[in-house]
Amino acid sequence: MKNILKTYLQRFQESLFLLLPFKSSTLRVLFISALILTTSFAKAQEVATKVNITLADVLSIDSESAANGGAVDFRYETVSDYNSQKTATVPKSLVVTFSKAFDVKVRANGEYFENGINQIPINVITIQRNESSTLMGKSTPIILSTTDQVLVGSAALGLKLQLDLDYIIPKAKSSSTDILGKPAGSYTQTVTYTASAL
């Protein structure tokens, strides 16, 4: 049995051209062992350094955003209220995290601020990005309407980007019959801010 194994081992060794220079069988065994160990070690190194990273796009709107059931109030109680421009600045109107470039649009969900049967057209409001915002991008003041309008375009990706907004009612609107002369009361409307990838 031992002889048969020895014959097979010899043939195997002879078939390995590389082993011919090694005359002693001890040297040949050492060489084969070294080869196996080297290969195993190399494989072990490969596995240890292989890191798979799977990144998915993500969009997040923080709960600290004012656009989260938040409210903006304008009060008209004196003559000077009607005879001046009013601005309500809402810090953190939106706090957005986006892993891609994106834009923010806004629309009103109805044509009027409503108080029962009494109405004030929504176009009395102008919205603009306040300079204090960390959410940067193309932005121009927009007059509120039921159409989706770009509030901030081509905004760069980032974490916790803060959009501070100015809500403005110009004097031309507050001193017009759009607001002046309307019955006293609370006029409300909802607006929706939409964030989407570019």
């Binding site: 969009l59 709107i61 955003s65 004012a66 656009a67 989260n68 059931g69 938040g70 409210a71 903006v72 109030d73 304008f74 009060r75 008209y76 109680e77 109107s93 939106l94 601020f113 004030i120 009395v124 409001i125 809500y167 009612i169 607001i179 006293a184 009361g185 609370s186 006029y187 409300t188 409307q189 909802t190 607006v191 929706t192 801010y193 939409t194 964030a195 989407s196 990838a197």
Partner: peptide
């Protein structure tokens, strides 16, 4: 994915003009 306002989101304003803000995700 459009946020729907809830009862507690309604404005606590006795008189004046008020805006209730909601948000929406747009998925291409």
């Amino acid at each position: 994915f459009t946020q729907i306002g809830k009862q507690k989101d309604e404005l606590k304003l006795d008189k004046g003009i008020g805006i209730i803000a909601l948000f929406e995700f747009g998925l291409h």
